[in-house]
Nucleic acid binder design. Structure first.
Lengths: 265, 265
DNA sequence: GAGTGGTCTAGACCACTAT
DNA sequence: TAGTGGTCTAGACCACTCC
């Protein structure tokens, strides 16, 4: 098969990383050096690195260099385990690399070496049309807004913009719950249990502002995950917009299939 | 905020599409014309189009031109509806744009104007290590392999490479079940019901071969969905590797949260 | 044959990081 | 100050589609 020059270079670099010639965390040769080595222009080398960056093999840090990604850092978001646990006999997916293994710890959990940076101070804002609709409240109602950047080992992993009904969560403006998961706090404080969630996933290229915050290049894809959480009483208590660096995440969904064996006519 | 020139051009094009100045299906100005209009080099215009292509706003057809994507063509893969149906009172996600609304119709279903192209004739192949592990059979066991390209309105949407135990599905080598869903056939023929599934999603840039088959550019992301399906008897009956053009898909997952309100210590 | 997107070149300047 | 990645330029040739 005919390969472009950039694709050829990408394959060579890929092989070097896979074979351990370039170990995890290593700084690769600079783009200028690589263009000399491969007899290609720098733009072509950049396209090659774009490709393997999109695959999550390397991370680019402006001003510093390009580094081989630590594969173990890919976060496994594991959903529907409750279902699996209820149905014995199905093999469990590999546990290594797992950062979160319960909904409550979740994508928002703090793993080792990870931390959360608030991009804005949590505040009360008027719900726009979309937020109001999802939280089932009138437009303009005050809601608690949080805007966070999650980092692992200092590397940005995801952006979370989330909205909560202020009557339940408003006191978080003045109260610090530390590392306690939000929904654990909700149960202890208001005796409300989260019971149901809907997640809508889309993958696309990052926008300029997302790229700046997540420190990724212009060709790196992100996964946009819009999450809605309801309590047992069917009250929406969270509407979150999560932007995750695609190369750093794996999403696992596991669920039972309805006993309905024919498509509806 | 400081925007690059490419990002600026992307925003302008985005606005033209959103405001209907460039309606769905319209052919946009050529890259050369746009570079003249914006006073930018063609490479910069290409990067701008890369961006909005990654967002799914336009589709590039080599030799023909760049066309405004028909947004309604984004396929909504809707999972976990069984759960929602069992829990009354939760609002249903919007139905418009929905192509598949049941697992059995699923990502493999044929919507209007869609068709499946077999890239290889279905055949019996020896299971490699990965396939054998997932189907819980010895390495080298013969399995039925299917390799398909799914198109909607002539536009490639996804690639599906799937493996099935040959004792159950082997006769499909010589039997054509037409449009009947595979698992409906399985139930009618062998009285086996699919009961459980696991899906692992990753988003990344497409490889060269994927790009060729799916006719997308080198910066367009894809969603890789590895799916495993079990019967009620906990027997794996499918191991599938699905490559979907990210810009053409939305994945919706909806499920109940276990009644466990504390993270494990 | 004219027009299109796909790829590549050989430079250039910038902002940032490290020393 | 030297090195890095980020961006941009003004060309070039190719394969493909359409007329």
């Amino acid at each position: 098969m005919e390969l472009g020059k950039a694709e050829e270079i990408a394959q060579t670099l890929r092989a070097r990383i896979m074979q351990g010639i370039l170990p995890e965390g290593t700084k690769t040769a600079s783009e200028r050096d690589l263009s000399e080595e491969f007899g290609a222009s720098r733009m072509t080398v950049r396209r090659a690195i774009d490709i393997i960056e999109g695959e999550g093999l390397v991370v680019r840090l402006p001003g510093r260099g390009t580094f081989v990604a630590r594969l173990r850092d890919r976060v496994v978001v594991d959903r529907g385990r409750e279902v699996r646990e209820a149905v014995e006999g199905y093999p469990m997916p590999s546990r290594e690399q797992r950062m979160s293994d319960s909904f409550l710890k979740d994508i928002e959990c703090l793993g080792p070496n990870s931390r959360v940076q608030f991009l804005e101070q949590p505040s009360l804002v008027a719900a726009d049309k979309e937020t109001a609709q999802h939280l089932q409240i009138p437009i303009g109602t005050l809601v608690l807004k949080r805007y966070q950047l999650h980092l692992v080992d200092g590397l940005p992993h995801c952006l979370i913009e989330s909205y909560y009904p202020s009557d339940l969560f408003g006191e978080l403006l003045t109260t610090d719950i530390g590392d306690e998961p939000l929904f654990v706090w909700l149960h202890e404080r208001h005796h409300l249990s989260v019971a149901h969630t809907q997640e809508v996933l889309i993958a696309r290229l990052a926008t300029q502002s997302e790229r700046r915050l997540l420190r990724i290049s212009s060709k790196a894809p992100v996964v946009v995950l819009n999450r809605k959480v309801w309590t047992e009483e069917k009250r929406p208590v969270e509407w979150a917009h999560i932007i995750a660096v695609a190369a750093l995440y794996t999403f696992t969904y596991e669920y039972d299939i309805a006993k309905r064996h024919r498509p509806t006519p």
